[in-house]
Lab assay of single mutants.
Amino acid sequence: NKFNKELGWATWEIFNLPNLNGVQVKAFIDSLRDDPSQSANLLAEAKKLNDAQA
């Protein structure tokens, strides 16, 4: 379904953000699993944090 596809894509993108540490990645992935409907918002937050830590 739509959420599974978005969840998978967001998970892959978060895993590939180079400036996040393992704890941050795990926290974002756990949040995605808790509420897949928020995948776009969580991915945006992860990208912002990644950019801030560059």
Rank of each mutant, 00 (worst) to 15 (best):
53 Q>C: 05
50 N>P: 00
39 S>P: 02
29 I>W: 06
42 L>I: 15
16 N>A: 08
10 A>W: 13
23 V>C: 07
14 I>T: 02
28 F>I: 04
12 W>M: 07
4 N>R: 05
52 A>F: 13
32 L>P: 00
44 A>I: 08
24 Q>C: 02
12 W>V: 09
49 L>Y: 03
32 L>A: 04
24 Q>A: 02
23 V>M: 11
19 N>W: 14
41 N>A: 12
26 K>G: 04
1 N>C: 13
38 Q>M: 08
22 G>T: 12
18 P>K: 09
12 W>C: 08
46 A>D: 00
13 E>C: 09
20 L>A: 00
30 D>R: 09
17 L>M: 10
24 Q>V: 02
16 N>I: 12
48 K>F: 12
4 N>A: 06
54 A>E: 11
25 V>R: 14
25 V>H: 03
12 W>R: 10
53 Q>P: 02
21 N>F: 05
13 E>F: 14
20 L>K: 00
48 K>N: 06
24 Q>W: 02
37 S>R: 06
9 W>A: 12
43 L>A: 03
13 E>L: 10
9 W>D: 09
40 A>Y: 12
12 W>N: 13
22 G>E: 14
20 L>S: 00
4 N>W: 12
41 N>S: 13
14 I>P: 02
52 A>S: 11
22 G>A: 11
54 A>G: 12
11 T>C: 12
12 W>T: 10
38 Q>E: 05
50 N>H: 01
49 L>W: 04
40 A>N: 09
4 N>M: 09
53 Q>W: 03
31 S>G: 06
27 A>W: 15
43 L>N: 02
8 G>E: 15
12 W>H: 10
49 L>D: 02
20 L>T: 00
3 F>T: 09
53 Q>N: 05
43 L>I: 10
54 A>R: 04
50 N>F: 01
13 E>N: 04
50 N>V: 01
50 N>R: 00
26 K>F: 04
49 L>V: 07
3 F>P: 12
40 A>T: 09
27 A>F: 15
42 L>V: 14
47 K>M: 10
3 F>H: 12
29 I>V: 11
13 E>R: 06
41 N>V: 14
50 N>D: 03
37 S>K: 07
3 F>N: 05
17 L>V: 00
16 N>S: 10
39 S>C: 09
23 V>K: 12
43 L>C: 09
9 W>I: 13
54 A>P: 05
26 K>H: 07
38 Q>A: 04
32 L>C: 04
46 A>V: 02
35 D>R: 05
18 P>V: 09
50 N>I: 03
38 Q>F: 09
25 V>Y: 03
32 L>G: 00
22 G>W: 14
7 L>F: 11
31 S>M: 15
36 P>I: 04
36 P>Q: 03
48 K>T: 06
37 S>G: 08
1 N>H: 11
16 N>D: 05
33 R>F: 13
49 L>S: 01
8 G>P: 08
50 N>A: 03
42 L>M: 05
24 Q>T: 04
54 A>K: 07
43 L>H: 03
34 D>M: 13
27 A>L: 13
44 A>C: 11
31 S>W: 13
6 E>F: 10
29 I>E: 02
24 Q>P: 01
41 N>C: 06
47 K>G: 02
26 K>T: 10
25 V>C: 03
47 K>T: 04
35 D>Q: 08
25 V>Q: 08
30 D>S: 11
22 G>D: 14
29 I>R: 02
25 V>F: 04
46 A>W: 02
29 I>F: 03
43 L>T: 03
13 E>Y: 15
10 A>N: 02
19 N>P: 00
5 K>D: 15
10 A>D: 06
1 N>D: 13
30 D>T: 10
14 I>K: 02
20 L>Y: 00
44 A>D: 12
40 A>L: 13
21 N>Q: 05
40 A>K: 11
45 E>T: 09
20 L>I: 02
33 R>L: 14
4 N>F: 10
25 V>T: 03
32 L>K: 00
23 V>A: 13
33 R>N: 13
8 G>W: 15
16 N>C: 10
37 S>Q: 09
34 D>A: 15
19 N>Y: 15
20 L>M: 01
10 A>R: 04
43 L>M: 05
20 L>Q: 00
9 W>G: 05
48 K>W: 07
7 L>E: 09
22 G>N: 13
19 N>Q: 03
33 R>S: 07
27 A>S: 12
49 L>A: 05
27 A>D: 09
3 F>W: 12
8 G>R: 13
37 S>E: 05
7 L>A: 10
35 D>C: 05
35 D>E: 04
29 I>K: 02
7 L>V: 05
39 S>H: 12
30 D>E: 12
2 K>V: 13
1 N>V: 07
5 K>W: 14
37 S>N: 11
19 N>V: 01
14 I>E: 03
48 K>Y: 04
13 E>H: 10
53 Q>E: 04
3 F>E: 11
51 D>G: 07
47 K>W: 05
24 Q>D: 04
17 L>C: 03
39 S>N: 06
36 P>C: 04
31 S>H: 10
34 D>G: 10
11 T>Y: 14
45 E>S: 06
43 L>R: 03
23 V>G: 12
34 D>R: 15
52 A>G: 07
27 A>V: 10
20 L>P: 00
23 V>T: 10
22 G>K: 15
35 D>A: 05
45 E>Q: 11
23 V>P: 12
21 N>D: 13
54 A>T: 08
3 F>A: 05
12 W>F: 12
53 Q>Y: 07
26 K>Q: 14
15 F>C: 11
17 L>I: 01
44 A>R: 09
15 F>D: 03
43 L>W: 05
31 S>N: 10
12 W>L: 09
29 I>N: 01
38 Q>K: 14
24 Q>F: 01
52 A>E: 12
2 K>D: 14
4 N>H: 13
16 N>T: 09
25 V>L: 10
26 K>L: 10
45 E>R: 06
42 L>S: 02
2 K>Q: 14
12 W>I: 10
21 N>R: 05
26 K>P: 01
11 T>R: 08
41 N>K: 14
41 N>Q: 13
11 T>L: 15
48 K>M: 12
38 Q>N: 13
10 A>T: 13
12 W>D: 10
2 K>Y: 12
28 F>R: 00
52 A>Y: 11
28 F>D: 00
11 T>W: 13
7 L>M: 11
18 P>I: 07
8 G>Q: 15
33 R>Q: 10
20 L>V: 01
50 N>Q: 01
51 D>L: 09
11 T>F: 15
34 D>P: 02
40 A>D: 09
18 P>W: 05
40 A>P: 06
18 P>N: 06
35 D>N: 13
26 K>A: 06
6 E>C: 11
50 N>C: 02
46 A>Y: 06
19 N>R: 01
9 W>V: 09
14 I>Q: 04
46 A>T: 01
49 L>R: 02
7 L>C: 06
49 L>F: 02
6 E>W: 10
49 L>C: 05
42 L>K: 07
21 N>L: 12
10 A>P: 06
49 L>N: 03
30 D>N: 12
27 A>G: 09
28 F>T: 00
54 A>W: 08
41 N>G: 07
8 G>L: 15
17 L>Q: 02
46 A>E: 00
30 D>L: 08
22 G>V: 12
51 D>H: 07
25 V>S: 04
41 N>E: 13
15 F>L: 07
7 L>H: 07
1 N>W: 02
1 N>K: 05
13 E>I: 15
39 S>K: 08
15 F>W: 10
12 W>K: 12
52 A>P: 01
20 L>N: 00
12 W>E: 09
18 P>T: 07
4 N>V: 02
11 T>V: 15
34 D>W: 06
3 F>M: 05
51 D>I: 09
53 Q>K: 04
30 D>A: 12
34 D>V: 11
38 Q>D: 07
